[in-house]
Nucleic acid binder design. Structure first.
Lengths: 219, 219
DNA sequence: CGAGAACCGTCAGTTTGATGTCAGACTGAT
DNA sequence: ATCAGTCTGACATCAAACTGACGGTTCTCG
């Protein structure tokens, strides 16, 4: 089995490489996202181990790009961020599993085995939410069985709600999610996007709490 | 470390129990959700292993109920459903990790160790106050398990009390909290909002001290 | 390269519901 | 019994939110 390790920490990277080699698998180890891009274009891997914090960007972006291009290679995320939100973001982006640092090398072996064993081509991971069937990996939604397409902004907004179901999100929080840091919006952009989402997905997907913000609807 | 195993498959359950025992941990094994409820009420566990498909209901509901009641015991989900949607639902419901069947017993041991090691912080800060469960981050309140929604002013007022439990707050102080500087209320606004809060949260949440002000009720 | 479509931010007219105000009932201290 | 303080239902108001429309920009495809 060919494994691609994307990790910039030299100590951890070496340890992981050695562990995998000891398990009898073949490993390629890169420490930057651009090198990772070259690697996946140059060879077919059976599994990717992906660190989220890399010198030239966040690993999530790399993962999303791969998935957007139709790559279904199993991915295990390695993250120092022990936060449910990061795990969910990773899974939403199409990861198959995650490991929170520091992790046991035995645990790593177990999960590699697990992903490999499990990976025999299961078609599509689908979240059900009321009348909606959401396939995050494929970025597709079916509403009452009929497919609905969302734009980039709409996905970003909807994901913000999905990753925190039940939580109230203020417009300021949502703007942060949608527009990184810079790029200030000085109009009712969020309202408009919420309106567009509701038109596509049903009026009850997102609930308004006047003066406070929005939250994902019950179902 | 005390571990509660909730699993109805007798073969798998026995294997897991033996493995945990071999690791030197103490296990209680139940095969139904109602028995699980009795167990968690009767003893304090350090970790719960939860099967999702049980004869008397879905494990997700059990997990959600525990979390809603403020229980923060780490939970690892055991599921035969190899679907990202289940993992996300589980993680959202407050699970700390999951294992997809069939799993290695070595992997189980590794994850138990991992969760136990990792578990230091509390995922969701929920304040319990009598029949109320208050999640300030999510801006949600449950009263006897049923969710109650507050308006912006009501939140502001309630937070003023929560941040100074037991302390007497005069109407003037409360007005300052609610209306920044330009305090321009010339009526019984505070009284009205206190009344509205009591209607939503129960008449005993806030106590009146005639001529002096208000304070948060005992519980 | 050009035409058309898609996407997104902005705005304006309309809708909605949270909130301040008031009046009358109620409470408790003296 | 009196009366100031408090409670609460009702209501009008106005800011917050909704949404259709528009135009600028980017993307797509011939």
């Amino acid at each position: 089995m060919r494994i691609l390790l994307i990790e910039d920490d030299t100590v951890l990277g070496a340890a992981v490489r050695d562990q995998i080699a000891a398990d009898g698998q073949s490993v390629d180890w890169v420490n930057r996202l651009d090198a990772a891009g070259d690697a996946v274009r140059g060879a077919a891997y059976d599994l990717i181990l992906l660190d989220l914090m890399l010198p030239d960007g966040r690993g999530i972006g790399f993962l999303k790009t791969r998935r957007a291009q139709g790559d279904v290679t199993p991915v295990i995320i390695l993250t120092a961020l022990d936060q449910v939100s990061d795990r969910i973001e990773g899974l939403n982006a199409g990861a198959d599993d995650y490991l929170v640092k520091p992790f046991d090398l035995a645990e790593l072996s177990a999960r590699i085995g697990s992903v490999a064993r499990r990976y025999n081509g299961n078609p599509n991971p689908i979240i059900e939410h009321g009348p909606l069937e959401i396939d995050l990996a494929a970025r597709s939604i079916r509403r009452d069985g009929k497919s609905v397409s969302l734009t980039a902004r709409e996905w970003a907004l909807f994901e913000a709600f999905l990753s925190r179901p039940g939580q109230l999100l203020s417009k300021a929080q949502l703007e942060e999610k949608l527009y990184a840091f810079d790029a200030e919006v000085e109009s009712n952009t969020i309202e408009v996007h919420v309106s567009r989402l509701r038109k596509k997905l049903g009026s009850s997907v997102i609930e308004t709490e006047r003066g406070l913000g929005y939250r994902l609807g019950k179902a």
